[in-house]
Simulated assay, not measured.
Amino acid sequence: MTFEEFVDARLQALLRYAVMLTGDPHTAQDLVQETMIRVQLKWRRVAASNAPERYVKRMITNAYVDLHRGSWLRRVVLGGFAPPAREVEPDHAEHAVERDQMWIWLGRLPRRQRAALVLRYYEGLTDNEIAEVLDCAVGTVRSSISRALATLRVEVVPALSGGDER
């Protein structure tokens, strides 16, 4: 498979994955674009791996986790956190509010915890696969997911029961 064939076949899926990680379609596009430049430069190594898509997802995940370590020029924020732009049907306003609130809750999680949740519940990966993508131990994956879910429970349960919303 050539780099061009890989991009044609998997770019949209990689972009959806990045949107789930970042919560912002523009940041996701930048993340995928920068990663794909690196992938093209290392294509022989990526193509030689057993699972090129998993290799690229690992690169995207690492770039996402390392976003805050970049140059101060790349950290200029022009607006607040916004959920990905999607068409919201007027009859489904309540669903849109719930979805937006979930984006806010996910946005409060540390990057590694959010990445672990996205890999588990959006990508459907096992603990071993997540550990491979995040380059950490399986126990670290389990504790990251556990901590993230515990944090979300603290946020979500009071909100759903009509308690204090944060």
Score class of each variant (00 low, 15 high):
residue 43 W to Y: 09
residue 98 E to L: 14
residue 153 R to M: 14
residue 3 F to I: 01
residue 10 R to E: 15
residue 15 L to S: 06
residue 126 T to W: 00
residue 79 G to T: 06
residue 134 L to Q: 07
residue 110 P to S: 12
residue 22 T to D: 11
residue 57 K to E: 03
residue 63 A to Q: 02
residue 113 Q to L: 03
residue 14 L to S: 06
residue 81 F to L: 13
residue 80 G to N: 10
residue 56 V to P: 00
residue 34 E to T: 07
residue 92 H to C: 11
residue 143 S to W: 00
residue 66 D to A: 14
residue 27 T to H: 12
residue 15 L to N: 07
residue 112 R to A: 15
residue 138 V to Q: 12
residue 30 D to Q: 13
residue 107 G to P: 02
residue 123 E to L: 08
residue 137 A to Q: 14
residue 60 I to Q: 02
residue 163 G to E: 07
residue 65 V to M: 11
residue 119 L to P: 09
residue 75 R to Y: 06
residue 71 S to D: 13
residue 36 M to I: 07
residue 65 V to C: 15
residue 51 A to L: 11
residue 7 V to H: 01
residue 155 E to V: 05
residue 61 T to S: 14
residue 105 W to D: 14
residue 109 L to Q: 09
residue 158 P to Q: 06
residue 106 L to K: 04
residue 122 Y to H: 07
residue 67 L to S: 13
residue 15 L to E: 07
residue 5 E to M: 09
residue 148 A to Q: 08
residue 147 R to W: 06
residue 161 S to W: 01
residue 23 G to I: 04
residue 90 P to H: 07
residue 90 P to T: 04
residue 21 L to P: 03
residue 99 R to M: 10
residue 28 A to V: 00
residue 122 Y to W: 01
residue 17 Y to L: 12
residue 101 Q to F: 05
residue 52 P to Y: 01
residue 90 P to D: 15
residue 120 R to W: 00
residue 101 Q to P: 01
residue 58 R to A: 15
residue 159 A to D: 07
residue 32 V to P: 06
residue 56 V to A: 10
residue 56 V to N: 02
residue 54 R to G: 11
residue 59 M to C: 05
residue 43 W to S: 08
residue 148 A to H: 08
residue 37 I to G: 05
residue 133 V to H: 02
residue 152 L to G: 11
residue 22 T to K: 05
residue 103 W to H: 15
residue 113 Q to F: 03
residue 3 F to T: 08
residue 84 P to Y: 05
residue 76 V to Y: 00
residue 4 E to P: 00
residue 131 A to L: 11
residue 62 N to K: 10
residue 106 L to A: 10
residue 28 A to Q: 03
residue 111 R to M: 15
residue 34 E to H: 08
residue 84 P to E: 09
residue 159 A to F: 07
residue 153 R to W: 08
residue 110 P to K: 09
residue 56 V to L: 09
residue 23 G to F: 04
residue 67 L to E: 14
residue 51 A to K: 04
residue 40 Q to G: 12
residue 96 A to L: 03
residue 44 R to C: 00
residue 132 E to K: 02
residue 49 S to T: 12
residue 14 L to E: 09
residue 83 P to D: 10
residue 156 V to S: 12
residue 146 S to D: 15
residue 128 N to P: 06
residue 94 E to W: 03
residue 96 A to Y: 00
residue 45 R to K: 10
residue 113 Q to C: 11
residue 70 G to L: 13
residue 145 I to N: 04
residue 96 A to R: 00
residue 164 D to N: 09
residue 148 A to S: 12
residue 104 I to F: 11
residue 165 E to W: 04
residue 152 L to S: 14
